[in-house]
Nucleic acid binder design. Structure first.
Lengths: 211, 211, 211, 211
DNA sequence: CATGAATGAGGTTTCATTCAT
DNA sequence: TATGAATGAAACCTCATTCAT
């Protein structure tokens, strides 16, 4: 990717007409496919447009540059996951710790696995495309939600601080990524759910038990 | 980076003479520096060579292409971490679980933080450069070592299987990465150590307590 | 020229719009000119593009690599000659041997001399650029045509086999090439016509007279 | 090949010591091999040196540049052929035409086929490396010899001029090249001998019979 | 709005040649 | 003499982006 001014990462215009929406969706889908089949450094705007069945020109009507195309995809997926976590946290407020973790982990993995291919594809970008900053910004919401939820646990005065929650979230992401990159068979995913619940639950409990 | 056949990722020749060794080290160091100062997609072979104080031609005497240069760096650092884990596992055999985890986590983080800049830089490339495969291959050793060690715990019949260990390792990596990308102040690192020990310890204990 | 996989020698896309056709023709012509003025090993794609009044990028839209550019030119010219021979053979069917050879040789030389500069330029590349294979493939048609024609000679049961015809064709090519590379003044060309007719005629006659 | 001043095409020094002779021969042989296995445009001085079992530096002790290396090979082989023709012509003086042609053609083909690989390899260079000029210069001797010989034919006042002989020589070369590039099985070579004799003999006879 | 031909800066890689050891 | 590490000019080729149609 050639150097690009840091501005202009937003999509160029929001599609309103039906045709436009279809076009944008085709582009989005094509990006995923190319990312998966060719990898980050053979992804070219021309190739994406071709796969989407439109011309490059059209692609550039919706995204001012390549970076914004990828950035949009990354943000979209991450928002989705963050939202899922937020909702799960709201639902689990006031419950006992074990139940909380169970619920949140399930929703987190659900969100990642809905279109697991997208998740996998995005691991190929996150480093570039404003990765860390974007990640931090989007994860902040999930972080707040989790911290808030933990404070309402019915069975334990929570000692969990922001840092502990970060560690937990990063662990969940790391483990899920690892499984996704190994292929993610259904049985693997089942085990992942189980283990992540155990991991988080025991961690939170241990935190609460600290002097 | 231009398309490159998946072969030819190995360095081209091992430096034998003193002069060569110095050259290769200069290239290695320059790669890190450029990665940190310019980022993955403004890293050019010319720039690396310049920074290393050699000509591009020289760089290409040791690495057949850009990919192999980056790949070599990634592998090198990962081997280092894997080795550190292996050694730590050997040292902690036969100890109680808590002590084991404490020891391994400490050594893991030590290895990552020695030249934290390198670790950070490498997160930018792991996705390309044969990432997953390389990761899997190199981590396999750490995995075996950890599993083996856990079986010798003095205080608990280990129920830990390969999958659980993968989850643990991925969690450690994920959390460490998260901290590194946020800046990694000394106090952060201290907290990370503490929390990762807690996380792993409680996880392993919980695993052992399962029906 | 850098190493190139043996595939991908075909032009990348056929020009359809008027603008494209002009572009491709400009590139073709520029290639000849550069070949003549600079020689095979100072012919660079950049130089060709410049001469053609387009950018390198444009050149690469029509030819996937340097080799294919040259290959296309070679094939084009050779097809032309082969076609000329085919047509001449068809026209001369049923005539006496002497007349046949006269006609074919004349048309062969006509075809080579139309843009003698191109012929000369192409001798510089035929060795690389898939030479032999291409030559064999394209000449096959001329070979068949000649053999077929000779069988219809009104004045002699033809003993000419495929091999004899190959020898004849190769002789014609060799002699013509020799003359072209010496400068090919009109008087030389006149003599060449005369002599090649004599050569072929007497050869075919001698073949027919063999026991 | 990079641009090189037109001077300095001669080998740098004549090897006198035994060791040197062996070295030069190894280089010569290696050049042929590389030419055959990799083709003209993947022939690099380093590769040749490697194949010859010496260092590049050593190669440059005997040839001032790549061009001279190739040029030397070309000239050497051509001289050989020319010499063979000269000798054959001397031997055949005073004989009848038919016998003359038979003798010369046989020796010509013998010379080309002794190390047919070399001949084939050289077709890959002749265009570059001062091709035409070199060819003209070296062939001049064969030309003179042939013309001289024909004038002494016992059975016919020769009408053959320099041009006719050029045509004949070019035909012989062309046909031989064609056969070599098609693989040159022994039976093919046998047929080639036969046919070239016939071709030349009938040609010369026809020339003599002209008004 | 869509198209896709054209652009050209710039990146990667090669390889003839030199020269200190 | 031989070596082979180093050089660096220069070649090939890509691809994000624009704009006339």
């Amino acid at each position: 990717m050639t150097a690009t001014a840091p501005h202009a990462l937003k999509p160029r215009k929001a599609p309103v007409q039906t045709r436009s929406i279809i076009t944008v969706e085709a582009i989005t889908e094509a990006t995923i496919q190319v990312l998966l089949s060719h990898g980050m450094d053979r992804l070219t705007t021309t190739l994406v447009a071709e796969r989407a069945g439109v011309s490059v020109g059209t692609l550039y009507q919706y995204y001012p540059n390549k970076r914004s195309l990828l950035s949009a995809m990354l943000e979209q997926k991450m928002e989705e996951v963050s939202l899922a976590v937020e909702v799960a946290c709201r639902e689990a407020r006031g419950k006992p710790l074990a139940e909380m973790m169970h619920h949140v982990v399930e929703r987190f993995i659900d969100a990642k696995m809905a279109r697991a291919d997208i998740s996998t594809a995005l691991y190929r970008i996150s480093a570039d495309v404003g990765g860390p900053e974007l990640v931090k910004r989007v994860e902040a919401r999930a972080l707040r939600a989790l911290t808030g939820m933990l404070a309402t646990a019915s069975d334990a005065g929570s000692k969990s601080d922001r840092f502990a929650v970060t560690v937990m979230l990063a662990s969940m992401s790391g483990a899920t990524r690892s499984v996704l990159e190994t292929g993610a068979s259904p049985s693997m995913v089942r085990k992942l759910r189980e283990h992540l619940v155990l991991l988080c639950e025991s961690y939170v409990t241990a935190l609460a038990a600290r002097p």
